[in-house]
């Protein structure tokens, strides 16, 4: 997902009996579905895990602007250009909502961004793949945002109040993103020439598996899932979310008249779900570790934006101080 493999630093989930009175009150509050708010007592591990999770999510939104930004100057029509601009702008906005939620935990946005640029913080693996044709703008909206929405809808009920509220706002605003993407693909498939149809299939071929990887490895291989689930900062297992995504996406894929690059993808009547092939987790771990196709470029771009903007931000601070001084003198 936008937050993958979030460390909790907890080896084993404590039972209620093992907890201190504060911890127990905290856990009971969560169990009763009462939101945790910034000034409430919370275990340090909960706070730190949330900071990691929300910042990862925020970093993903911000880095996620780049693959689409790659095409914003080349969008084919005025309508598509405006839609893409609005979508990318939403992503910046969603990154900011999330940083804002994260800062209620006492973390500092600039410091967390520094960690990202130093390679010490993660962001979603998906944004390390290049966007190579216009259909990628459709596929990103449909598959990548689609996968994100599956997760985010569930996270609206997360236990931390500010995170939950940010998610509610984000889900509301993102409803157009997936439609926008799908419409791009549908238009190309229905009204496009052969070259355009080939673009669509090519985009799906490249982005299909990375989209499935977004949900993270199977929960059996996710050592932090149990604690995150009991804290309700994760509300459904990676595998369940992935299955939900596949089940809702395959009919849309068929409606497009395209195929997935997975010969094992087929409906399983007995399970009532689609079966699918083996995900290449080696690729996932490689990309997460920094060896994806665009990791270096993405971070270099973000770092350069920050470095190049330093004098601008400093000037704004200096100017504000001067104005304050003038006001005080007057």
């Amino acid at each position: 997902m936008y937050a993958q493999l979030v460390e909790t630093g907890v080896k084993r989930v404590k039972s209620l009996e093992e907890m201190s009175p504060e911890e127990r009150a905290f856990q009971e509050r969560i169990d009763a579905e009462i939101k945790i708010e910034p000034k409430n007592w919370m275990p340090d591990a909960y706070r730190q895990t949330l900071i990691r999770q929300i910042s990862q999510h925020a970093h993903s939104e911000i880095v996620g602007m780049l693959p689409e930004g790659n095409w914003v100057t080349r969008a084919p029509t005025l309508k598509r250009k405006l839609q893409l601009m609005a979508k990318i702008q939403d992503e910046a906005g969603h990154g900011m909502y999330l940083y804002s939620a994260m800062e209620t935990l006492g973390a500092d946005r600039d410091e967390e961004i520094d960690k990202l640029h130093a390679g010490k913080a993660k962001y979603s693996s998906i944004f390390n793949y290049p966007t190579l044709n216009w259909a990628d703008m459709g596929a990103v909206g449909w598959l990548v945002d689609g996968a994100a929405i599956v997760n985010q809808v569930v996270l609206q009920r997360t236990s931390y109040g500010p995170y939950s509220r940010a998610m509610i706002r984000i889900c509301k605003e993102e409803s157009f993103h997936q439609r926008q993407g799908y419409e791009i693909l549908l238009t190309m498939m229905r009204h496009g020439n052969q070259a355009q149809k080939d673009m669509v299939q090519d985009a799906i071929n490249r982005l299909w598996w990375p989209s499935l990887m977004m949900f993270g490895p199977s929960d059996a291989d996710s050592p932090n899932s149990a604690q995150s689930m009991s804290w309700k900062i994760k509300r459904m297992s990676n595998d369940d979310l992935r299955q939900r995504f596949i089940d809702q996406t395959v009919p849309q894929l068929e409606f497009l008249g395209c195929t997935a690059p997975d010969p094992d993808l087929k409906w399983n009547e007995e399970r009532g779900h689609y079966d699918f092939g083996q995900i290449n987790w080696q690729e996932f771990y490689d990309v997460l570790k920094g060896n994806g196709p665009c990791n270096r470029e993405r971070i270099a771009t973000r770092r350069k934006a920050l470095d190049d903007g330093k004098w601008v931000r400093e000037a704004a601070v200096a100017h504000a101080a001067k104005r304050q001084q003038k006001q005080n003198a007057a």
């Binding site: 930004g69 005025l78 405006l82 609005a86």
Partner: peptide
């Protein structure tokens, strides 16, 4: 302004520049 996308000196400026760009391309249309 679209060329600034992802490169602005602050996140707040990303939003602002894209807002201006949206206005302008909308007017152009």
């Amino acid at each position: 302004l679209c060329e600034w996308c992802g490169h602005a000196p602050a996140l707040e400026e990303e939003m602002a520049l894209m807002n201006v760009a949206l206005d302008l391309v909308g007017q152009a249309r």
